[in-house]
Design a protein around this nucleic acid. Structure first.
Lengths: 159, 159
DNA sequence: GTAGCTGCAAAGACTTTGCCCGGGG
DNA sequence: CCCCGGGCAAAGTCTTTGCAGCTAC
């Protein structure tokens, strides 16, 4: 899928220039920013910053990795992308911000979407049980993708 | 709570010396290993490796951070501890391996336990929807703990 | 006795940041 | 024209690893 970011005027409708909470905002649509957004929106592979850097570099060979990080950070603050922070592994980014969860392959680390949502009521229960004011949540599954499952079976037979 | 690790013979019942999947095992109960286990089991604060290092250092001033990391890694492989690879911060460790989930405070980063489990059936649904063989899962809530909530309210009134 | 562990320090992987300049608006 | 954002590189943070000596068993 090819994604084309159209700039209508000064900024995206979703892009404030930072709210009352002091966030940064997106003020200018530069070529780099557009390219990063388009590449991210165009895949469902949850690329890491480095992978995205390589992708964007096809179009903008002089872009720097720092720029990619800077923009991904801003985009996730602005709600244009999801930053999947699984500590212990590098962050991965998701251009699909609709509610869904993820499964990560224990073999190859690949992340896939899972179209499931947290059963309603569970957040309320968590709030009661913990005393925290719940603001968000994340469900992550771990598992084995088809490819790694086959590889594993073969390895076990071999040993 | 004080936790005392008793060594019966060669090894813990739960501690294999590595399974068919080639994992490392725990062969020897050293003072360092015992101290790390005991400190981790004795708190419910989900310490990071560095925090645990500081805790253990009270007892074993010459222990090294590398040893703490090495042992935490092995323990989590052996199922004696949980490695919480939660969103964007350093890994934290949990001596409580019974099924439960966690909430992290958006203000101070503190992690607390939430005594809730994934509704049964959801893992099966995820398996069907994703094609992965699901092996585990994690539910993480984000929220504001009481202390940070009060701090925030005060700050907002102040501005 | 021996191989599994430790302490130490260096290296590694990923991410953030300071600085100065260019270009978007 | 102004200042946001980019390129570059250095620094920062967390974690892993190689090595030589020590020690649990």
């Amino acid at each position: 899928m090819l994604v084309m970011i159209m700039v209508t005027n000064r900024r995206f409708p979703e892009m404030g220039s930072g709210g009352a909470d002091g966030r940064r905002g997106i003020e200018r649509m530069t070529a780099q920013r557009r390219a990063i957004l388009e590449e991210l929106m165009g895949v469902d592979t949850h690329p890491s910053a480095l992978e995205l850097y390589e992708m964007v570099r096809q179009r903008l060979p002089r872009i720097s990795l720092g720029t990619v990080y800077r923009n991904l950070e801003i985009m996730s603050e602005e709600g244009l992308a999801l930053k999947l922070e699984h500590a212990g592994a590098e962050c991965r980014y998701d251009g699909n911000v609709s509610p869904h969860c993820h499964v990560r392959c224990l073999g190859c680390g690949r992340i896939s979407d899972v179209p499931l949502a947290l059963p309603e009521g569970l957040a309320v229960e968590a709030e009661k049980a913990s005393g925290y004011r719940i603001a968000g949540h994340r469900i992550e599954f771990d598992g084995w993708c088809g490819k790694c499952r086959r590889k594993r079976r073969k390895a076990r037979r071999g040993e």
